[in-house]
C-alpha cells in the first residue's frame, strides 16, 4: 500500500524532473526551421507543394542511409563507409545493367552494399578492430574503387523500368521515392522497436558484456548491423542512379555528414544503447529542408556547409549533455 504510493510519487517526480530535451529536440528543431523558412522564404516558393515534395524526394537516399546508421550507432558502432558505398553500388548497378539488364543490375548494386557491409562487419566483429578505423579505411578504399571502376566517367542509366522503380515513377499517385522512404522507415521502425533483433542491437550498444552473459552473440549482432547499413547504402545508390538517370563516383560523396547529423539530431546516441528510426526520418527531412532553404536563401555552397556544421555541433552538444545527466 505505502509502497505503491511511494512508487507513484517517485514516478511523478521522475517525470517532472526529467523533461527529456534530447528526445524532442528533433521535432522542435524541425518545426522551428520550417517556420523560419516559411516566414523568411514565403516569396521564394519554399511553401509550394512542389518544393516541399521535392525536399522529401531529394532526402530519400539520406533517410534510407540514416535508418541503417541508427542500427549501427545503437549497437555502439559507426559506419563511415556509407559515404562511398553509395557510388560503388550505383556504378555497379549502372554498368551491370548495360550488359545484363534490370535484375542483375539491381542485384549488383545491392550486392555491393552487402559485400562492403560484410567486409566491415567481419573486421569489426571477428577481427575486433574498431569500427571507426575500419569504416574510415573502407570509406577511402571504396572511394578509390568507385573512381577507378569507370575512370571517373559518368554512366548513363537508361533502363526505364529501373528509373521508374527507383526514381521518377509513381504508384497510386505517390512517387516511388516516397514509397521507398515509407517502406524503409516502417520496416526499420518495426525491426528496431518491436523485435528481439532490435532489442539485442540496443543491448549490445548499451552494455556488451551484459548482453553477452545474457546469451546474445555480440559479434553476430555487430556483423548484422554493419551489413544492414551496407545494404541500405547500396539501396540509396540505386535511388540516386534512378532519380539522376546516371551513376557517377561523386554520388553520395557529401552525404556522410548529413546522415550522421540526421541520426544524432534524431535522438540516437553516439555511444549506443538508445535511438529512434522515426527521429532519424525527421532528422533527415530537417537536414533536407535546411539544404533546400539555404539554397533558396541564396547562400553559397561554402556557407551552407558552415551552417550545417554548426547545426551538427549543436546536436552533438545536446546529445552529450543528455548522456552525462
Amino acid at each position: 500500500m505505502s509502497s505503491t504510493n511511494q512508487g507513484a510519487a517517485v514516478r511523478a517526480a521522475g517525470l517532472a524532473g526529467r523533461v527529456n530535451l534530447q528526445q524532442y529536440v528533433v521535432y522542435v528543431g524541425f518545426l522551428a526551421i520550417f517556420l523560419f523558412f516559411a516566414i523568411v522564404l514565403k516569396d521564394s516558393g519554399f511553401l509550394t507543394v512542389r518544393n516541399l515534395s521535392n525536399i522529401v524526394l531529394q532526402t530519400a537516399p539520406v533517410t534510407i542511409m540514416a535508418i541503417g546508421l541508427v542500427f549501427v550507432m545503437s549497437a555502439g558502432e559507426i559506419d563511415l563507409s556509407i559515404g562511398s558505398t553509395v557510388a560503388v553500388a550505383a556504378l555497379a548497378a549502372a554498368v551491370t545493367m548495360q550488359g545484363y539488364g534490370l535484375v542483375p543490375g539491381v542485384l549488383a548494386g545491392l550486392g555491393c552494399g552487402l559485400l562492403i557491409g560484410l567486409v566491415n562487419g567481419v573486421l569489426v566483429a571477428y577481427v575486433r578492430l574498431p569500427s571507426f578505423l575500419v569504416t574510415l579505411a573502407t570509406l577511402g578504399l571504396f572511394a578509390g574503387v568507385s573512381r577507378s571502376m569507370t575512370d571517373l566517367r559518368s554512366i548513363p542509366v537508361t533502363n526505364e523500368a529501373f528509373t521508374g522503380f527507383f526514381g521518377s515513377g509513381s504508384l497510386l499517385g505517390i512517387p516511388s521515392l516516397i514509397w521507398w522512404t515509407a517502406i524503409a522507415v516502417a520496416f526499420g521502425h518495426i525491426l528496431y522497436r518491436e523485435t528481439r533483433f532490435g532489442a539485442h542491437v540496443l543491448a549490445i550498444g548499451d552494455n556488451a558484456r551484459a548482453a553477452s552473459v545474457s546469451g546474445i552473440s555480440v559479434p553476430k549482432m555487430r556483423l548484422a548491423v554493419l551489413m544492414i547499413s551496407g545494404a541500405l547504402a547500396g539501396l540509396a545508390g540505386l535511388l540516386y542512379a534512378g532519380r539522376l538517370q546516371a551513376a557517377k563516383y561523386t554520388l553520395g560523396e557529401t552525404d556522410l555528414m548529413t546522415v550522421i547529423a540526421a541520426v544524432i539530431v534524431g535522438g540516437t546516441l553516439l555511444n549506443g544503447g538508445k535511438g529512434s528510426i522515426i527521429g532519424a526520418l525527421v532528422g533527415s527531412l530537417m537536414m533536407g529542408m535546411l539544404n533546400n532553404g539555404l539554397i533558396l536563401m541564396g547562400l553559397s555552397v561554402s556557407d551552407q556547409m558552415i551552417v550545417r556544421g554548426l547545426i551538427i555541433l549543436a546536436a552533438v552538444a545536446v546529445s552529450l549533455r543528455e548522456k552525462s545527466r
Binding site: I190, E194, T195, A199, D206, N207, S214
Partner: peptide
Amino acid sequence: VYQDLALADQQTVYMNMFLGREPTNALGLL
C-alpha cells in the same frame, strides 16, 4: 548476479529482466 551489475543501463527494467530471452507473439514481435 554479478557485483558489477550486468544490466543494460539505458533500457527499461522489463527489457533487462528478459534480456536475451524476450518472449514474442505469433507475429514474432516482442
